[in-house]
Amino acid sequence: MDNLTVQYLIVGILVLAAVWYVVRNVRKSLKGKSGCSKGCGCSCGTVEKPQKAN
């Protein structure tokens, strides 16, 4: 494999990693997995796994 091909491979991996990162972040938030937020305005007084008392 020549030098140029290796470079293209590395570039491809980096670009795909960037795309994967952006898509993952968007999907996580749209599924609500990032949790209720400080600015969301909804009822967000709970911790992620609500601990039931008695």
């Binding site: 968007v26 938030s29 990032s34 400080k38 969301c40």
Partner: peptide, 12 residues
């Protein structure tokens, strides 16, 4: 905005 709201929903 995403960082401060913690949410892509509101950002989008």
């Amino acid at each position: 905005v995403k960082r401060e709201t913690g949410s892509w929903k509101w950002t989008l």
